[in-house]
Design a protein around this nucleic acid. Structure first.
Lengths: 168, 168
DNA sequence: CCATATAGACAACCTGGTTGTCTATATGGT
DNA sequence: ACCATATAGACAACCAGGTTGTCTATATGG
């Protein structure tokens, strides 16, 4: 299809297909590691990537989020979501209050610290993206994002990554 | 969905930096899930992503690989690498033999089944890459790969992903 | 020939998932 | 109003795949 000169590496060249997933993973982990390095230096050393996903989900929800809702958003069981909420509450990133309209639900809302962590994260991600743009050009990063968005559909927060990478 | 008719979409637009890591992860997991779905259907249902990384490392090594070598390549402790080898041997993908030149070492070599799994994987990855190329154009996928390669450096097989995603 | 390094087994532990079971609360049909 | 059913989430047991720490056996080099 491409009539470009042979400077273009062929992605469909047989036997090289394994590189793409590794590159995607490498890019992801580079960003995430840089984020948490920076977050650690900024007073959030105990925040783990999984926590970030959960915080994002909680912050993204309008009011507050209960364990079952979080479970749905993250793609894990409600027990797992409940543990995560417990941890985040223990670290001071969220507060858990009983839903006045439903005594079974404990809704999670971000604390000031939680909001600070989220806004720090956003700023850091922006900066990391800008650094990438500096290195390979803004267009290349924009194309990267555009292509991936087209291929993977709407962004999701599924966090069962750890489990499907490893067990079961 | 461009909010502005600019020729150059801004990746550095504030507050959108979080999308890039999510897209990278989504792309990775899409490929890996598709791979293991297909591998499962082709007679390798018990092969996990982590196993694939290890098999790749073992197959990529010239002769055989011992636990300590695998540990180095995967970026995990030798105990973890040893467990992985034990599992892979139990599943019939590798055979472990005592190194004749060093009685301490148990070197892992691929069995026929292991080689089959690797070549299936390679074929499937190639096909998945071709499918992506069909969807967004070969140039876009090539650009994706080129940009990521430039940003992340040489491809690595580090498999401690599960752990840095979650614990530690 | 011994001092030191290395391979890897074993055990205890941690994290973050899982399933299964249980109680408390909501909710809707009769 | 009442009961059947569904739902929220706690609790416990378990599992996978890492970790650290310790131990033994084997190599290796001064």
């Amino acid at each position: 299809m491409t009539t470009e000169p042979e400077t273009e590496p062929k992605t469909t060249e047989p036997g090289t297909g394994y590189r793409l997933p590794l590159l995607l993973l490498a890019g992801f982990r580079e960003l995430i590691e840089a984020l948490h390095l920076e977050l650690g230096a900024r007073g959030h050393p105990d925040l783990r990537p999984a926590h970030g996903f959960a915080l994002q989900a909680i912050g993204g929800a309008g009011g507050g989020l209960a364990a079952a809702d979080l479970a749905t958003r993250l793609g894990v069981t409600k027990q797992a979501a409940g543990k995560t909420l417990e941890t985040l509450a223990g670290l001071g990133y969220i507060s858990l209050t009983v839903d006045p309209s439903d005594a079974r639900r404990r809704t999670a809302t971000l604390t000031a610290r939680g909001r600070a962590a989220l806004s720090h994260s956003a700023a850091i991600f922006d900066r990391l993206g800008a650094q990438w743009a500096d290195r390979v050009g803004e267009q290349a990063v924009a194309a990267l994002e555009r292509t991936l968005a087209e291929l993977t559909g709407p962004v999701t927060l599924r966090t069962d990554s750890a489990s499907w990478l490893g067990g079961q």
